[in-house]
């Protein structure tokens, strides 16, 4: 699925150059569940953005199913994001003026689905995360956990190959965290997708079958045979 070779990413901050990623090599197979951990500023989110085609590396290649995302024209990269990659963000990133149902539908708009089709699929996605009854609610009318479930439904409604989650439980309390992790685990199993998650939470990291630790832009991957 993913093949990263010599990926570097440099940012300029004034006169200084910051190496967010310093030659990352990484292979992620179909259906893998990878947790990325590391200190703040270590390059976790940058790596996730490279994987999601949200940003391009300074050098190196990021291949998804043999296609180098780093060299893909913007229009095709957008298409890849629309069809193959689902995102879940720490702060949910729901559109405040749209209902839960409409927020989920935003992920189907680029696929060109007709209104009734779109509505049906969005409703199903919300039902699958346990929010079938709250479709008409605005984000402000939902709890943090419910909002994140809407975000998960939005990420999964298009049936992506990859689900990328950037600290999805970072803004939630402990009970909500477990609830969301259960939802994510269930969806991963059900859809057989590749699931890559960035987290600070060690209790979550411990349960991951593969753990990638990023420090100062370099990555170290460990396998966890005892993972659930």
């Amino acid at each position: 699925m993913y093949q990263l070779r010599g990926v570097t990413k440099q940012y300029r901050r004034g006169k200084d150059t910051i190496d967010a990623l310093a030659g990352v090599d990484l292979t992620i197979g179909d259906g893998d569940r990878l947790v990325i951990q590391g200190p703040t500023g270590g390059g976790k989110s940058t790596l996730l953005q490279m994987l999601g085609g949200l940003d391009r590396p300074t050098s190196g290649s990021v291949e998804l199913d043999g296609v180098d995302l780093a060299r893909l024209p913007e229009a095709r990269l957008t298409k890849v994001r629309a069809e193959s990659i689902g995102f879940v963000f720490q702060s949910f990133n729901l559109i405040p003026t749209l209902t839960a149902q409409e927020n989920v539908e935003t992920a189907l708009v680029p696929l060109g689905l007709k209104g009734p089709d779109r509505r049906e699929r969005a409703a199903d996605a919300l039902t699958s995360v346990g929010l079938g009854e709250r479709r008409g609610h605005l984000p402000a009318e939902l709890s943090g956990g419910q909002q994140q479930r809407v975000a998960i439904a939005r990420a999964l409604v298009k049936k992506p190959k990859v689900l990328l989650a950037d600290e999805p439980t970072g803004n939630l309390d402990e009970s909500m965290r477990d609830e969301i992790m259960e939802v994510l685990a269930a969806q991963w199993k059900e859809h057989g997708l590749t699931f890559i998650m960035v987290t600070h939470d060690s209790s979550i990291a411990r349960k991951a079958p593969r753990l990638a630790t990023i420090r100062k832009g370099t990555i170290k991957v460990t396998e966890n045979d005892k993972a659930a």
């Binding site: 405040p96 680029p110 298009k158």
Partner: peptide, 12 residues
């Protein structure tokens, strides 16, 4: 953030 999110989910 709103537009960034929409672009992330595939809006051109």
């Amino acid at each position: 953030r709103e537009f960034g999110t929409l672009k992330a989910v595939g809006w051109t």
